[in-house]
Each structure stands twice: as C-alpha cells, then as structure tokens.
C-alpha cells in the first residue's frame, strides 16, 4: 500500500493519494511510516523538478496532496514523535508582499522534515533579527519576488551580522535571485525554485548528500 501511496503522490494523482492514505490509516497502518513515505515521495517530486521533468504546477499540486495527507496523519502522531532535521526562520523581505514562492518553499521544506517558522511578508530587518534571536534557527530563509527586494535582502543579512547572529546559514530565494545577488547580499546560498532551495538547505546543514 505504501508503494501505491508513493506512486500516486509522484504521479500527481491527488484523489488516489488521499484515498490510499485514508485506507492505510483505517487499516491500522503506522502513521510514522506514512509520513516517511510521503516525505520520500516529495523528495522524488523535487528531484523530477530539478531534472526538468516537473514544473511549478507539479510542485504546487504535490504540496497540496502532501498537506491533505498530513491533515490525516499528524493528529495521530505525538509532537515529540515527528522528527525534524532542522529549523528555518522564513520570511519575505521588507517592501515585498509576495508569498507564493515562500509558501511553495515552505511546503517542500516541511515535507523534507524542516520545522519552518514563517514570519510573513514585508518583514523588516529588525523583525528577522528578533525572530532569529527568539527561535535560534539553523537556517534563515529570505524570499523576494520583485527586484525591489534585492537591497532589503542585503540589509537583512547585514543586520543579522551586526546583531552578532552568525550561527544560522542564510539562503535567499525568489524568481530574480542568482549567484550575483547572493554575492551582493552576502547570503550563503541562493535558489530560484523550491526544490533547489530545500536541497541546498540540507546541504548547508551537511545533510542529504546521499545518492
């Protein structure tokens, strides 16, 4: 059954994936195992995206399928049982109110096992600093869509450094970021899609270099 679930997630069969997951749990299946299978499936979707076989529409749909299955699964797991692989403080930088990219990344990061603290959109430097102080994340994720977000990213990286918060790795993401913007902003990594973003987050923490 878990194989059927895996295949229907990767195959973008939303109805089947939810139906099989429900059946699996009703038949006394292990919710932890289901979570693992779903995470593996999402990983596979991410890989297909990076290979150019899948596109944003598939990322969005699989994120939705994953969320649907998690709504059934997570209540059956104790919070302490849900293993996480790292913590990310995530927000769209100041003067940018867009959130679709941030939300896709968040869905994939959570599916990969990250705990994500979403601090919203149009987030000023001070709020990033406060959130990093409060949550002590492994990674700070900054998102922007519009070109006006480039300089706020740089300012936020600087603000974190000035506050002495150098423990977390910084990744920037969005349609208009690239290597040049990464250098400019002083971030540790960049991604212009969620799949690459999550892969790099794992790499930044020395995880997920398998296969």
């Amino acid at each position: 059954m878990t194989e059927k679930i895996f295949n229907s997630i990767v195959g973008m069969e939303e109805e089947n994936a939810l139906k099989f997951a429900k059946e699996y749990l009703n038949d006394g299946g292990d919710p932890q195992k289901l979570l693992d299978v779903c995470r593996e499936a999402m990983d596979e979707v991410g890989e297909k995206f990076e290979k150019g076989e899948y596109f944003l529409s598939e990322l969005l749909l699989s994120g939705e399928i994953f969320k649907g299955i998690m709504d059934l699964t997570l209540p059956l797991l104790k919070e302490s049982e849900v293993e996480t692989i790292g913590k990310i403080v995530l927000g769209t930088v100041q003067d940018d109110i867009h959130d679709i990219g941030k939300n896709i990344f968040k869905a994939f990061a959570e599916a990969a096992g990250f705990e994500v603290i979403d601090i919203g959109v149009d987030v000023p430097e001070e709020k990033f600093v406060e959130a990093v102080k409060e949550h002590n994340p492994d990674i700070v994720g900054m998102s922007c869509l519009i070109t006006a977000g480039i300089n706020p990213m740089k300012r936020t990286v600087e603000a974190l450094k000035e506050a002495g918060l150098t423990g977390a790795k910084i990744i920037i993401g969005g349609g208009r970021v690239d290597e040049e913007i990464k250098e400019f902003s002083g971030a540790d990594a960049w991604a212009d899609d969620a799949a690459r973003g999550v892969r790099l987050c794992k790499e930044l923490l020395g995880l997920g270099v398998e296969g």
Partner: peptide, 9 residues
C-alpha cells in the same frame, strides 16, 4: 541582461 548584473554589477 540579467537584472542582477545591472543592480549589483
């Protein structure tokens, strides 16, 4: 011409 080059090059 990438916007990043104009903005930060």
């Amino acid at each position: 011409v990438p916007i990043s080059l104009i903005a930060s090059g």
